[in-house]
């Protein structure tokens, strides 16, 4: 039994290999890019617009709204990263209904890569926002004693991100695979539907957590409320 699509290797040349994870990821990238390109090819700025444009606008504005609700004041600055996280994970989960498809997020390598991206993005956005000194200083908040704990927290949450998504996606695929062998009818369909829901929830959780981490990295910069007389 295959635990991860990583093990499905199509081509290998030494260290470099082309496994199912990368291929399916490319497929998803292609679908996302081509779809976006097709829909945004002739966007309408008027009140009348196509259903697809409407859908994309809803998606984009909803993501922006979510980012804003987390506490990031300029959602357009973070939507590129956080929105793509959500869309990629969500589409990856949605495609599980396609037979033969294996979600790339069911590979720990992918989830680790995404978690690493978040791990890198948090200090990048933090430093961008409040400078290197300011960002590094936030690790020693509220006291210097907290520094190791903060660092541990940073690492562990990245690990948690990766493992949580991997566990959920892999378990979903695994359960379906097991159920297919036991009860080939009905149950796998129900579980697939449940898997879709889980996938969407995981996509939401992953991107929201990433947003929360980024927001936490710049929380120190939030303006002090004006003193009341």
């Amino acid at each position: 039994m295959r635990l991860s699509p990583d093990s499905m290797i199509f081509w290998q040349h030494g260290f470099v290999k082309l496994n199912a994870t990368i291929v399916f990821t490319w497929g998803l990238m292609l679908v996302l890019t081509v779809g976006a390109k097709l829909i945004t090819r002739n966007l309408s700025v008027g009140l009348k617009r196509s259903r697809w444009q409407n859908l994309l606008e809803i998606v984009v504005t909803s993501i922006e709204k979510q980012i804003e609700e987390v506490g990031l004041r300029q959602p357009e600055k973070y939507i590129g990263f956080l929105g793509t996280l959500f869309l990629f994970i969500a589409l990856s989960a949605l495609c599980t209904v396609i037979p033969g498809y294996e979600p790339p997020t069911g590979s720990l390598s992918t989830t680790a890569a995404l978690a690493l991206c978040v791990f890198v993005a948090v200090p990048v956005f933090g430093i961008q926002d409040q400078g290197l000194g300011g960002y590094l200083k936030s690790y020693a908040e509220p006291t210097v004693i907290m520094l190791p704990f903060n660092i541990i927290s940073e690492l562990s949450r990245t690990l948690a991100l990766a493992v949580r998504l991997f566990g959920n996606m892999m378990s979903g695929a695994m359960i379906i695979a097991i159920l297919l062998t036991i009860t080939p009818f009905l149950f796998p369909i129900v579980m697939t539907a449940l898997g879709l829901l889980t996938g969407m929830v995981q996509a939401y959780i992953f991107s929201i957590l990433a947003a929360v981490y980024i927001a936490a990295a710049m929380r120190t910069r939030e303006p002090e409320p004006a003193p009341t007389p």
Binding site: M29, L32, T40, G83, L85, S109, L116
Partner: peptide
């Protein structure tokens, strides 16, 4: 379970996807 090349490739893929999405989705929308 972890393949370092795949991690690297996926991270790169993701960054490319971020750029593509920014270019073709978020910005025009």
């Amino acid at each position: 379970l972890i393949d370092w090349f795949t991690i690297f490739a996926q991270a790169l893929n993701f960054l490319i996807l971020v750029w593509l999405m920014k270019r073709y989705l978020y910005k025009p929308i």
